[in-house]
């Protein structure tokens, strides 16, 4: 909540658009980074941030101030990204029936290659091809989620536990397994 002035959330809850705009400005950058790390795609990340803030806006009157605002916000953003990944994986498995079908890397490389890039997109492409990002996106979603929240959003284990509604011991187990899986994936020789 340190990013927001006093009373901003309360005013936004009462429908004050200026206050809501302050919330958007304070959090759009970290939420865009979060979404990009989940989805490995700039356009989808932008859509996910828009969807997140739309849900935040409509549900703000139901936000309970006894809980930390950022926990509530990150829970919505994380759920939006996980939903999108789930839909993407469901579609990909339908599309690739009869094939071995677990190669999402090829799918988003094809998509990225399809139109002329802006300089901003060029930067995102180089990042998408980044070995670390690729390994991160190949992880099972529960591991990917905790590693993004822990290392990219730099949240505490307690905050991650609150966001995901799981015990700290579960968060730790997922981080441990996620680190092991990342280590294995990063040790693979990159396919050129």
């Amino acid at each position: 909540m340190e990013r927001l002035g006093p009373g901003v959330v309360q005013r936004a809850q009462a429908g004050d658009l200026d206050a809501f705009s302050e919330i958007v400005k304070a959090f759009e950058d970290p939420l865009y980074t979060l979404a990009f790390r989940f989805l490995s795609n700039g356009g989808e990340a932008e859509d996910a941030v828009q969807e997140t803030f739309l849900r935040v806006y409509t549900h703000l009157p139901r936000y309970d101030q006894q809980f930390k605002f950022t926990t509530w916000l990150y829970r919505i953003a994380t759920n939006v990204c996980i939903d999108r990944l789930r839909k993407r994986r469901a579609t990909a498995s339908l599309d690739s029936e009869g094939q071995d079908g677990d190669d999402f890397v090829g799918e988003w490389h094809d998509r990225l290659a399809s139109s002329a890039p802006t300089p901003e997109e060029m930067l995102l492409r180089s990042e998408t091809c980044n070995e670390v990002q690729r390994a991160l996106s190949d992880l099972p979603t529960p591991y990917q989620t905790v590693l993004i929240l822990r290392y990219i959003q730099e949240l505490s284990l307690q905050e991650i536990s609150d966001i995901l509604h799981v015990p700290i011991t579960t968060v730790k187990t997922r981080i441990h397994r996620g680190r092991e899986a990342m280590k294995e994936l990063m040790a693979r020789v990159p396919v050129s």
Binding site: S21, L31, Y32, R37, V49, Y57, P61, R62, V132, L136
Partner: peptide, 30 residues
Amino acid sequence: ELKRLKRYAAPSGLTERILQSVQGIPQKRP
């Protein structure tokens, strides 16, 4: 390596697009 991954700024104009998208959208009741 995870800590070294870049943090991004949201694309320009995203704030305005978000604010436009909520115009006229009803909020849930408390």
